[in-house]
Simulated scan of single mutants.
Amino acid sequence: MQELIGTGVALVTPFTANGTVDRDALKKVVQHQINNGIDYLVVLGTTGESVTLTKEEKQIVIDTVVSVNDGKLPLVLGVGGNNTQIVVEELKHIDKDNFVAVLSVSPSYNKPTQEGIYQHFKAVSEASPLPILLYNVPGRTASNMSLETVVRLAEFDNIIGIKEAAGDLVQAMNLIQYTPKDFLVISGDDMIANAMTLAGGAGVISVIGQAMAQDFSDMIRYGLNGDVAESYELHYKIAPSIDMIFEQGNPAGIKALLHHLDLCDSKVRLPLVSVDQNLNDRLKTFLDQYEN
C-alpha cells in the first residue's frame, strides 16, 4: 500500500479542562498534520489514550477526525487488545469507508507465546475487512514478536506490514531483509525512524511528527530518497525533543509540546499525569530555540 509509505502520525486525543474530548482542539491537531506534510493519520492508537476512552468517546474521535480530514489523508484505525474474541467482534463493526487499514497491537499483559501471538493475529486477519498493520511494542506488551512469527504472519494476504517499536535496529533490519518486498516495515520508534528508513523501511508512525510535522516528514522523505546527509541533518535537529517527550511518558510529553504550539491542552487521563514543570519548561525552551 503505497499510501502508507512515509510519515504517519499517531494522533493524540485532546481533552478539555473538565476532561471531555476536545473536538475543536482535535480539529486543530488534524489540520496541523494536513498543512505540514504528514502522509497519513493513525486514529485511536496508544498515543490517543484509547484504553481510557469510552466507546462513545471513541466514536466522537473518529467522527471528528473523519470530518476535518475530509478525505485529504489516508486514515488508519487502531483496533487491538489482549482479548482476541473482543478484538474480532470490534473488527466486525468498524468504519470500512473512511479507513484504509487497521493497526493492531500485539496482546499485552497476558504474555502469550509466539504461537499464541500468531494465532491471535490469524483470527484478527480472518475477521478484518481492512488490511492490517501489526504493532510490536514490547515496552508496553511485555512480549516481543519474533522475526519468525512476523514472517509467518506476512503470508496472510491482508497483513500488509508492521509498526516495529522494539527499539532494536538489528531486529528491524532483519524484518526488512526477511519479509516480502511489499511488506511494510514501519518504524514505531522516532529516534531510529530515519535509520530504519535508510535501511529499507517504509517510514514511520510517529509521535514527535505530530508537533514537528514539516521537518520530521521531510526527514523521512529524504530517507526514502536515500539522501543521507539531508535526512540526518533534520534528525539531529529534532532528536533532543524526542528524548524529552518520552521522558515522563507518552502522550504526556507530546501533549505538553502541542500545548506550547497552541494546538491543544496538555491534560491527560489518569493513571497518566501531565509532565512536571521542569520538563514543561525545557520543552518550551527547545521550541523557542527551534523556531528561531
Score class of each variant (00 low, 15 high):
Gln277Asn: 12
Asp276Ala: 02
His259Lys: 15
Thr47Tyr: 13
Glu291Asn: 13
His32Ser: 04
Arg23Cys: 14
Gln114His: 08
Met196Phe: 04
Glu3Ile: 15
Val30Leu: 12
Glu56Asp: 14
Leu270Tyr: 14
Pro180Asp: 03
Glu148Gly: 04
Val273Asn: 11
Tyr135Leu: 09
Ala123Leu: 04
Val9Leu: 14
Thr46Val: 02
Gly200Glu: 13
Asn174Ala: 13
Asn158Glu: 03
Ala17Arg: 07
Leu44Trp: 02
Asp288Asn: 15
Pro112Thr: 05
Asp63Gly: 00
Ser128Thr: 00
Pro129Lys: 13
Val273Tyr: 12
Asn36Trp: 06
Asp190Pro: 10
Met244Glu: 09
Glu57Tyr: 05
Gly139Val: 08
Leu11Tyr: 12
Val102Trp: 01
Arg140Lys: 09
Thr13Cys: 07
Cys264Gly: 08
Leu287Pro: 02
Ile62Ser: 05
Val275His: 05
Tyr40Val: 10
Ala199Val: 09
Met219Thr: 05
Asp182Ser: 13
Ser67Phe: 00
Cys264Tyr: 08
Leu270Cys: 08
Val68Ala: 00
Glu164Met: 01
Ala239His: 13
Thr7Trp: 07
Ile208Trp: 02
Ile205Asp: 08
Ile86Trp: 14
Lys27Leu: 01
Thr20Arg: 11
Met244Pro: 06
Lys111His: 06
Tyr178Asp: 08
Pro112Glu: 08
Met191His: 11
Ser274Gln: 14
Gly6Cys: 12
Met173Val: 13
Ala25Ile: 07
Pro14Thr: 12
Ser241Ala: 15
Pro240Gln: 01
Thr7Ile: 09
Val151Asp: 01
Leu224Tyr: 04
Leu26Val: 11
Val100Glu: 11
Asp218Ala: 15
Ser187Gly: 12
Glu148Thr: 13
Gln277Val: 11
Gly188His: 00
His120Phe: 04
Asp157His: 11
Gln59Asn: 13
Tyr178Leu: 12
Arg221Trp: 04
Ala195His: 14
Val42Leu: 15
Val100Tyr: 02
Val150Gln: 08
Met145Arg: 04
Ala193Gln: 11
Val51Arg: 06
Ile38Pro: 01
Asp182Thr: 14
Gln210Ile: 07
Ile62Leu: 04
Lys267Gln: 15
Leu53Thr: 02
Ile60Glu: 11
Gly80Val: 10
Tyr232Gln: 15
Asn278Glu: 14
Ala213Gly: 13
Ala252Asp: 06
Thr149Phe: 00
Val9Phe: 13
Ser217Gly: 09
Val21Pro: 11
Ala127Tyr: 00
Ile86Pro: 07
Gln119Asn: 14
Pro240Cys: 00
Val21Tyr: 09
Ala10Trp: 07
Gly209Val: 03
Val268Met: 09
Ile186Leu: 03
Thr113Val: 03
Val268Asp: 09
Ala211Asp: 03
Gln177Ile: 08
Gly71Tyr: 00
Asp189Tyr: 04
Lys111Trp: 01
Ile132Trp: 07
Ser104Pro: 02
Gln248His: 06
His259Gly: 10
Pro271Ser: 10
Asp168Gln: 07
Ala165Met: 10
Ser206Cys: 06
Asp70Val: 00
Leu41Asn: 08
Gln289Leu: 10
Met219Ile: 04
Gly201Lys: 04
Glu230Pro: 01
Leu147Ala: 10
Asp189Met: 05
Glu291Tyr: 11
Ala10Gly: 13
Val76Ser: 07
Leu91Tyr: 09
Thr16Ala: 12
Phe216Leu: 07
Asp218Gly: 02
